[in-house]
Design a protein around this nucleic acid. Structure first.
Lengths: 230, 230
DNA sequence: GTGCCGGTCAACCGTTCGGTTGATGCCCTG
DNA sequence: CAGGGCATCAACCGAACGGTTGACCGGCAC
């Protein structure tokens, strides 16, 4: 198992206009099988290749392109056990193949994940608990160049905009991430090239915004709300 | 969508001996579709029903039993967004239908999850990144009353046994879980009906065993090693 | 420009945490 | 039964944390 697999019949050729050709990237065989089955319900969608991690995805897409079989979109998982991360793969894919839509399909809807994916150039963000119809629609939307966001994801992004009292500044999120790694105020200060006093100031603000009364609770709340990744 | 779905053709009857009838429990339609597709490759296995959460699983199994179509095993996810938890569902299922094997099929291999599942009476623990053949084998093993453990899971359980210096006592894990919720030593003490002094003693031991120098770091290490759930 | 917000820093103080030592009781294994 | 591991508790002390007040500066909006 090399992590790359082309579906049989790829060589048949992908005439433009005869449907959408998609590449699946997910480290779980079960999920790939599920997506394949789910997408096969839509006659307009064809899965032309699969990959089990980011690196393999880049390879297989490159191979398809050199063969003149440029896919219409990539369905990408974010969390992949080994090998290249989904965000990194998305970023590189967007560099190698500008215009190739990457639709993220993952389990988690943390703020950090979503923002990272959007920043990396993802054209959509769906959750795995979505119904088949939603996924079909998202695939068509993404392939057509439209943005496809799951309701929960859109809501979270909206929530980030409006609620001022709960929204952390970028600096605060940055600090929070270091906090989650177990660093002391001293270490955080050194890491960010600021004084311990500043760290404490930020922490107080973070506690207020998250409704926590100590660092561990803050990390927990942030993790639950999806502000940082567990 | 009520979370319960019976596959068409169930009424046809399940003659004993004509294969294994399985019930799928997972909140992700994608995963259910993948398992269905994956299991359908084995002609000996038939998926007779599905459920999207623990409560629905209990209902659908009860219905099957009253119809005289007692399934041969249940494939259960642990993490389910809404509704009853997989561990709780497994426990109740084992009470309602003793002898009905429950094979856990989940994404995470944390010590806490595995131990909880085993304690609840699961007869196997597989990870979703398993190959189709492994899952087939696990299903047959579980249905035959044998224990089916994924290699990584078995290794983790082994690791828990051998490495004395790194293995935490049950009490320590219990404390660690409260620690991860952001409670102070005071609060932990009250929660466990012990004194703050005892909490501190446990913490020191935990720090030693995990190689951490403070509570936040301990939580992080424990989370990374899969001792507690993120 | 005035005001506001984000980020930076300092000094202070009470509380909690981190770590040590030492001690008791329990259960299990050798 | 002796030993060891586990869980419990107490007292102690220095260090870190939690929280406050007050201050400075740069950018941005009004």
């Amino acid at each position: 198992m090399d992590g790359v697999r082309q579906s049989p019949g790829v060589e048949g050729g992908a005439q433009p206009g005869d449907g959408l050709s998609a590449v699946l990237v997910d480290d779980h065989p079960v999920v790939r099988a599920g997506l394949r089955a789910m997408l096969s319900e839509d006659p307009k969608i064809r899965v032309v290749a699969e990959a089990a991690d980011g690196k393999a995805a880049l390879d297989v897409v490159a191979r398809l392109v050199t063969e003149g079989l440029r896919p219409d979109l990539v369905l990408m998982d974010l969390q992949m056990g080994e090998g290249m991360d989904g965000v990194a793969a998305t970023r590189q894919l967007r560099q190698q193949c500008p215009g190739l839509p990457v639709l993220i399909l993952t389990t988690y809807d943390t703020e950090a994940d979503i923002l990272a994916a959007v920043e990396a150039g993802a054209s959509g963000y769906m959750l795995k608990d979505a119904a088949p119809e939603e996924i079909h629609r998202a695939v068509h939307d993404a392939a057509a160049g439209r943005t496809a966001l799951a309701p929960a994801v859109a809501a979270r992004l909206m929530g980030r905009m409006r609620d001022d009292s709960t929204s952390l500044s970028t600096r605060e999120v940055e600090l929070l991430e270091l906090l989650a790694t177990g660093l002391s105020n001293q270490q955080i200060a050194r890491q960010l090239f600021i004084s311990v006093a500043t760290v404490k100031t930020h922490l107080v603000h973070i506690y207020q915004k998250l409704g926590a009364d100590n660092r561990t609770a803050a990390v927990r709340v942030a993790s639950e709300r999806g502000i940082i990744r567990a």
